[in-house]
Amino acid sequence: MMKGVHFLVTLALLALATSLASAYDPSPLQDFCVAINNTNSAVGFNVTLVNVDKLPGLNTLGISLARLDFAPYGLNPPHTHPRGTEILVVVEGTLYVGFVTSNPNKLFTKVLNKGDVFVFPIGLIHFQFNIGKTNTLAFAGFSSQNPGVITIANAVFGSTPPINPDVLIKAFQVDKNVIDYLQKQF
Protein backbone atom coordinates (compact mmCIF):
# COMPACT_ATOMS: atom_id res chain seq x y z
CA MET A 1 0.00 0.00 0.00
CA MET A 2 2.81 2.41 0.95
CA LYS A 3 4.62 1.68 -2.31
CA GLY A 4 1.43 2.66 -4.18
CA VAL A 5 1.23 5.99 -2.34
CA HIS A 6 4.91 6.74 -3.00
CA PHE A 7 4.37 5.87 -6.65
CA LEU A 8 1.37 8.20 -6.94
CA VAL A 9 3.18 11.06 -5.14
CA THR A 10 6.24 10.60 -7.37
CA LEU A 11 4.03 10.54 -10.47
CA ALA A 12 2.20 13.70 -9.33
CA LEU A 13 5.49 15.53 -8.65
CA LEU A 14 6.87 14.44 -12.01
CA ALA A 15 3.74 15.70 -13.77
CA LEU A 16 3.97 19.02 -11.90
CA ALA A 17 7.68 19.39 -12.72
CA THR A 18 7.01 18.63 -16.39
CA SER A 19 4.25 21.21 -16.60
CA LEU A 20 6.43 23.83 -14.90
CA ALA A 21 9.38 23.02 -17.14
CA SER A 22 7.30 23.53 -20.29
CA ALA A 23 5.70 26.77 -19.10
CA TYR A 24 7.46 29.70 -20.78
CA ASP A 25 6.71 32.93 -22.57
CA PRO A 26 6.08 32.53 -26.28
CA SER A 27 8.80 33.66 -28.63
CA PRO A 28 8.64 37.37 -29.42
CA LEU A 29 9.50 36.50 -33.02
CA GLN A 30 6.38 36.52 -35.16
CA ASP A 31 5.91 35.68 -38.82
CA PHE A 32 3.58 38.16 -40.46
CA CYS A 33 2.78 39.77 -43.77
CA VAL A 34 1.42 43.30 -43.92
CA ALA A 35 -0.33 43.81 -47.22
CA ILE A 36 -0.96 47.29 -48.54
CA ASN A 37 -4.31 47.74 -50.22
CA ASN A 38 -2.90 49.83 -53.06
CA THR A 39 -5.46 49.59 -55.81
CA ASN A 40 -4.59 52.93 -57.40
CA SER A 41 -3.15 51.24 -60.50
CA ALA A 42 -4.55 51.87 -63.96
CA VAL A 43 -6.72 48.75 -63.64
CA GLY A 44 -7.69 49.14 -59.96
CA PHE A 45 -5.87 46.05 -58.76
CA ASN A 46 -2.92 45.14 -56.53
CA VAL A 47 -1.26 41.80 -55.86
CA THR A 48 0.91 41.01 -52.86
CA LEU A 49 2.86 37.89 -53.80
CA VAL A 50 4.44 35.48 -51.34
CA ASN A 51 6.68 33.16 -53.36
CA VAL A 52 10.10 31.57 -52.86
CA ASP A 53 11.81 34.87 -53.75
CA LYS A 54 10.07 36.64 -50.86
CA LEU A 55 9.92 33.71 -48.42
CA PRO A 56 12.87 31.34 -48.96
CA GLY A 57 11.27 28.81 -46.61
CA LEU A 58 8.95 27.88 -49.48
CA ASN A 59 11.90 26.39 -51.38
CA THR A 60 11.04 22.84 -52.53
CA LEU A 61 7.54 22.94 -50.97
CA GLY A 62 5.79 23.53 -54.31
CA ILE A 63 3.43 26.23 -53.00
CA SER A 64 3.04 30.01 -52.96
CA LEU A 65 0.35 32.52 -52.09
CA ALA A 66 -0.97 35.88 -53.26
CA ARG A 67 -3.26 38.49 -51.73
CA LEU A 68 -5.42 40.17 -54.38
CA ASP A 69 -6.96 43.59 -53.66
CA PHE A 70 -9.51 45.04 -56.07
CA ALA A 71 -10.96 48.55 -56.12
CA PRO A 72 -14.59 48.77 -57.21
CA TYR A 73 -14.61 47.53 -60.84
CA GLY A 74 -10.91 46.69 -60.55
CA LEU A 75 -9.42 44.11 -62.89
CA ASN A 76 -6.68 41.52 -62.72
CA PRO A 77 -6.13 41.50 -66.51
CA PRO A 78 -5.93 38.34 -68.61
CA HIS A 79 -2.74 36.49 -67.69
CA THR A 80 -1.26 33.02 -67.30
CA HIS A 81 0.86 31.21 -64.74
CA PRO A 82 3.17 28.96 -66.78
CA ARG A 83 4.34 26.92 -63.78
CA GLY A 84 1.34 26.59 -61.48
CA THR A 85 -2.35 25.92 -61.05
CA GLU A 86 -4.17 28.62 -59.06
CA ILE A 87 -6.94 28.18 -56.51
CA LEU A 88 -8.73 31.39 -55.57
CA VAL A 89 -10.98 32.12 -52.58
CA VAL A 90 -12.99 35.33 -52.22
CA VAL A 91 -12.80 36.78 -48.70
CA GLU A 92 -14.83 39.97 -49.28
CA GLY A 93 -16.78 41.27 -52.27
CA THR A 94 -17.77 39.80 -55.61
CA LEU A 95 -15.60 38.73 -58.55
CA TYR A 96 -16.45 37.74 -62.10
CA VAL A 97 -13.74 35.23 -63.04
CA GLY A 98 -12.95 33.10 -66.04
CA PHE A 99 -10.42 31.15 -68.04
CA VAL A 100 -10.08 30.13 -71.68
CA THR A 101 -9.22 26.61 -72.78
CA SER A 102 -7.26 25.99 -75.96
CA ASN A 103 -8.29 23.99 -79.02
CA PRO A 104 -11.12 24.92 -79.01
CA ASN A 105 -10.96 28.32 -77.31
CA LYS A 106 -13.80 27.95 -74.83
CA LEU A 107 -14.49 30.48 -72.07
CA PHE A 108 -15.54 29.27 -68.59
CA THR A 109 -16.81 31.97 -66.22
CA LYS A 110 -18.45 32.27 -62.82
CA VAL A 111 -19.50 35.03 -60.44
CA LEU A 112 -17.88 34.42 -57.05
CA ASN A 113 -19.13 35.79 -53.74
CA LYS A 114 -17.62 35.75 -50.26
CA GLY A 115 -16.42 32.23 -49.44
CA ASP A 116 -16.56 30.93 -53.03
CA VAL A 117 -13.59 29.10 -54.53
CA PHE A 118 -12.45 28.73 -58.16
CA VAL A 119 -9.55 26.89 -59.83
CA PHE A 120 -7.55 28.14 -62.82
CA PRO A 121 -5.64 25.30 -64.53
CA ILE A 122 -1.91 25.72 -65.11
CA GLY A 123 -0.95 27.78 -68.15
CA LEU A 124 -4.46 28.87 -69.19
CA ILE A 125 -5.34 32.52 -69.79
CA HIS A 126 -7.58 33.75 -66.98
CA PHE A 127 -8.81 36.95 -65.29
CA GLN A 128 -10.65 38.32 -62.25
CA PHE A 129 -12.93 41.39 -62.36
CA ASN A 130 -14.58 43.08 -59.38
CA ILE A 131 -18.18 43.61 -60.52
CA GLY A 132 -19.18 45.21 -57.21
CA LYS A 133 -19.31 48.77 -55.94
CA THR A 134 -17.08 47.92 -52.96
CA ASN A 135 -13.50 46.71 -52.55
CA THR A 136 -12.91 43.00 -53.00
CA LEU A 137 -10.29 40.87 -51.28
CA ALA A 138 -9.24 37.40 -52.41
CA PHE A 139 -6.39 35.01 -51.74
CA ALA A 140 -4.83 32.71 -54.32
CA GLY A 141 -2.78 29.60 -53.66
CA PHE A 142 -0.48 28.15 -56.29
CA SER A 143 0.89 24.67 -56.89
CA SER A 144 4.38 26.07 -57.41
CA GLN A 145 6.92 27.93 -55.28
CA ASN A 146 7.26 30.33 -58.23
CA PRO A 147 4.28 30.04 -60.62
CA GLY A 148 5.37 32.98 -62.80
CA VAL A 149 2.97 35.38 -64.47
CA ILE A 150 2.59 36.53 -68.04
CA THR A 151 0.11 39.39 -68.43
CA ILE A 152 -1.11 39.09 -71.99
CA ALA A 153 -1.45 42.79 -72.91
CA ASN A 154 1.89 43.68 -71.30
CA ALA A 155 3.66 40.84 -73.10
CA VAL A 156 2.14 41.59 -76.51
CA PHE A 157 2.16 45.38 -76.49
CA GLY A 158 4.90 46.18 -73.98
CA SER A 159 7.77 43.86 -74.86
CA THR A 160 11.33 45.18 -75.18
CA PRO A 161 12.16 45.46 -77.96
CA PRO A 162 8.59 45.82 -79.23
CA ILE A 163 7.01 43.22 -81.48
CA ASN A 164 7.06 44.43 -85.08
CA PRO A 165 3.79 46.36 -85.65
CA ASP A 166 3.24 44.50 -88.95
CA VAL A 167 3.02 41.24 -86.99
CA LEU A 168 0.47 42.71 -84.57
CA ILE A 169 -1.55 44.41 -87.34
CA LYS A 170 -1.94 41.08 -89.10
CA ALA A 171 -2.52 39.06 -85.91
CA PHE A 172 -5.22 41.37 -84.53
CA GLN A 173 -6.60 42.49 -87.91
CA VAL A 174 -6.57 46.16 -86.91
CA ASP A 175 -5.19 49.40 -88.28
CA LYS A 176 -1.59 50.45 -87.52
CA ASN A 177 -2.90 53.44 -85.51
CA VAL A 178 -4.59 51.02 -83.10
CA ILE A 179 -1.37 49.06 -82.62
CA ASP A 180 0.65 52.27 -82.15
CA TYR A 181 -1.88 53.47 -79.56
CA LEU A 182 -1.82 50.17 -77.67
CA GLN A 183 1.99 49.96 -77.66
CA LYS A 184 2.16 53.47 -76.18
CA GLN A 185 -0.09 52.37 -73.30
CA PHE A 186 2.44 49.75 -72.19
Rank of each mutant, 00 (worst) to 15 (best):
I122T: 10
V119Q: 06
F7V: 14
V178R: 01
D175R: 02
A23C: 13
I36A: 09
V9S: 04
T80S: 12
K106W: 09
S27V: 07
A71Q: 09
V47W: 11
N177W: 02
G141Y: 01
D180V: 03
V100M: 07
L137I: 05
F186P: 12
T101H: 03
T10V: 10
Q173C: 02
V111K: 07
V167W: 08
H79K: 05
P28H: 01
S64D: 12
Y96A: 08
L29Q: 06
N59A: 07
I150H: 02
I150F: 06
L49F: 11
T160K: 15
I63V: 15
V149M: 11
Y181S: 14
P161R: 04
V111C: 06
H79L: 14
T136I: 00
F32Q: 02
D53V: 10
I125R: 00
A138G: 06
D25A: 08
A12Y: 09
G98N: 01
K184I: 08
V178Q: 05
Q183G: 01
R67L: 12
T101E: 14
N113E: 13
T109G: 13
P162M: 12
G84R: 03
A23S: 07
H79M: 15
N154W: 08
A171V: 06
L14A: 12
S64N: 05
M1T: 04
G62A: 09
L11P: 10
P162L: 15
V5L: 13
I150L: 07
P165H: 00
M2E: 15
D31M: 15
Q185C: 03
E92R: 02
D31W: 11
I63L: 14
T136L: 08
N76M: 15
P104M: 00
V5K: 05
A42I: 14
P121F: 01
L55H: 11
F70K: 09
L16S: 04
H79V: 13
N37Y: 06
E92H: 03
F127N: 02
T94A: 09
P82Y: 06
H79Q: 10
K170G: 08
G148A: 01
C33K: 03
S144Y: 00
H79S: 10
F118A: 14
L16Q: 08
N135M: 04
A66T: 01
R67K: 13
G98A: 03
I163H: 11
F108W: 04
S102P: 09
V111Q: 09
F118Q: 05
P28T: 00
F139A: 00
D53K: 09
V89I: 13
S27Y: 04
F108S: 02
P162A: 09
G132D: 09
I36R: 15
G93I: 03
N135T: 03
P121E: 04
K110M: 14
L11T: 04
K114E: 14
A35W: 12
L13W: 07
P82M: 13
A140M: 02
L61M: 13
S144P: 05
